[in-house]
């Protein structure tokens, strides 16, 4: 399933309608099936806005999102009928993206009952435990509430819940920025394993070029709602076009920089 974003613009109007925020300005790119696209940019450049639009949470002010060559609006009806949501979104903050009153088991069960409604009770349970174990959460923990888990565990649970919807494209909006470094590394490795296992397409958003480097095939650099750089990882690293990209690359710790040069050569 190929995803294409064409000339997307998003303008937020404040209540007074005097001040408007142009969060996205003419953003276009595409992602090939089974690949990982990294999106980097500083805080407030519109990464989350773009993620929400791609995931269908918000409508763009202008422009369109094409899924397998079809405009998202046109296939929305078809999607609703088949109860299929091929694009899922993992949120930045694992502390707020789970209902505090639902045990983890019930949070996943709710999704499984939509996307695997033909399963009987026993198979539903098996499926839930299978999803949880695929992200490394044991079944003995499944009847706990979200607040009884660490941030990293919660992010794993959120990932399992997204997988329950059998997505083809997963939008990851800074999935590790709320976690500390060692936990981040585990989550990123988990995501890479899952991507291979289910042949998923990722849109991996981060403000950290160092992390994006580990994961992506191609990369987008955003600045103030616009794309200033788009290309494969080696292209961008070897010949950055925009001044801002050059500064980002220079800011990657030098040791990392060396490693990239070795592998890139």
């Amino acid at each position: 399933m190929k995803l294409e974003v064409r000339n997307v613009t998003k303008v937020y109007e404040s209540n007074s309608k005097e001040r408007t925020v142009q969060a996205l300005n003419g953003v276009s790119f595409s992602v090939e099936e089974g690949s990982i696209l990294g999106i980097v940019g500083e805080s407030g450049c519109g990464k989350s806005t773009l993620s929400r639009i791609v995931a269908g949470l918000e409508e763009p002010t202008s422009g369109e999102v094409l899924i397998s060559g079809l405009p998202r609006k046109g296939i929305a009806k078809f999607i609703r009928k088949s109860s299929k949501r091929p694009i899922q979104l993992v949120f930045q903050d694992p502390y707020s993206s789970l209902n505090p009153r639902q045990t983890v088991y019930h949070a996943i069960e709710e999704v499984v009952k939509i996307y695997d409604h033909e399963l009987d009770a026993a198979d539903t349970q098996t499926r839930i435990f299978e999803l949880l174990s695929s992200v490394g959460i044991g079944k003995d923990l499944s009847h706990r509430y979200p607040h009884q888990f660490s941030g990293g565990q919660r992010q794993r649970i959120c990932i399992a819940r997204s997988l329950a919807a059998k997505p083809e494209i997963l939008v990851l909006d800074e999935p590790v920025s709320a976690l500390d470094v060692s936990v981040s590394a585990d989550i990123i490795n988990l995501l890479l394993d899952l991507q291979r296992e289910f042949n998923l397409t990722y849109i991996f958003v981060s403000h950290d070029l160092g992390i994006v480097k580990h994961v992506s095939d191609s990369i987008i650099v955003m600045l103030a709602g616009e794309i200033v750089e788009f290309g494969s990882w080696t292209q961008v690293m070897d010949s950055p076009k925009h001044e801002y990209t050059k500064r980002l690359i220079a800011a990657i710790p030098s040791l990392e920089n060396l490693k990239i040069k070795e592998t890139g050569a």
Partner: peptide
């Protein structure tokens, strides 16, 4: 929001 993305 995630409920909406998940199709609830």
């Amino acid at each position: 929001k995630s409920g909406r993305v998940l199709g609830f």
